[in-house]
């Protein structure tokens, strides 16, 4: 094995509390370049909250996030981090996100959705942004839908546009939160295929998913979240085939016995 890839994103002792509920209870996570991490866990275990803390859509209650070795925010002297809006905007340009509900901008055509951030945030010229958008749309197989409106697309197509939109920023890490969970079963495949294609180009990704078969073949590492903590993590062969923890085993059984 060659020398380990550099660490892109790391989370240290992340906690998150909503009101009186502790949703994350101290999560540590190190993401190296090129890694593909699948995050599993039952509903309400804090998977979405963890992803949203990683790009600071939610501000963690405690702990720190570091991107490329640089800690985001600065200590406020009381054991928490203070964040500057501008800094967070910059961080988010480098950490992409794909949502369960797609969240395409309905008032913009498909290509405008993809061009918006490269142009408005990265300051690219219109021609550059358009070239990037066309390339990304072609990569997810939707080049011919460039001038369509989001409402004219199927769920699977919308999600592929959302992936193209995130990739147009060329993020160092891509976060995907249950990207196929709100799709009709027959549309899941096309989205998973688009995601799989990204692994060929070595894209660093974290994906929350309930598609265990996909996770097994796709992920370089699997993380099982339970009750706001990482209960178990390791290579897919180990976590999915020979889980150490009873809870992990039960979870996997529940999701596999549906298949026949």
């Amino acid at each position: 094995m060659t020398s380990p890839e550099p660490v892109v994103l790391s989370a240290t002792a992340i906690t998150k509390r909503f009101g009186t509920v502790d949703v994350l209870k101290g999560v540590d996570l190190t993401v190296r370049k090129g890694e593909r991490i699948a995050i599993l866990g039952s509903s309400g275990s804090g998977k979405s909250t963890l992803l949203r803390c990683l790009n600071l859509l939610e501000r963690p209650t405690g702990g720190t996030i570091a991107l490329d070795g640089r800690t985001i925010g600065r200590p406020d002297g009381k054991g928490c981090q203070r964040y500057d809006e501008r800094e967070l905007d910059r961080v988010r340009t480098r950490v992409g996100m794909v949502f369960q509900q797609f969240n395409l901008f309905p008032h913009m055509r498909v290509i405008e959705n993809v061009m918006e951030a490269p142009r408005g945030v990265l300051g690219k010229s219109k021609a550059e942004a358009q070239a990037i958008a066309e390339r990304q749309l072609a990569a997810v197989g939707l080049a011919e839908k460039a001038t369509a409106w989001p409402a004219q697309l199927s769920g699977g197509q919308q999600q592929r546009v959302a992936i193209a939109r995130a990739l147009a920023m060329d993020p160092e890490v891509l976060l995907l939160d249950e990207p196929t969970s709100s799709l009709d079963p027959e549309l899941v495949g096309e989205v998973l295929a688009a995601i799989r294609a990204l692994s060929d180009e070595g894209r660093t990704m974290l994906i929350v998913t309930h598609e265990l078969g996909f996770a097994f073949h796709f992920a370089t590492r699997v993380l099982f979240l339970h009750d706001g903590k990482v209960l178990e993590e390791g290579p897919p062969e180990q976590v999915l085939k020979a889980p150490r923890e009873e809870r992990t085993r039960r979870f996997i059984e529940r999701f596999t016995e549906r298949r026949f």
Partner: peptide, 8 residues
């Protein structure tokens, strides 16, 4: 959220 996630 989608806008924020794009760094806008």
């Amino acid at each position: 959220e989608a806008g924020r996630a794009l760094g806008m």
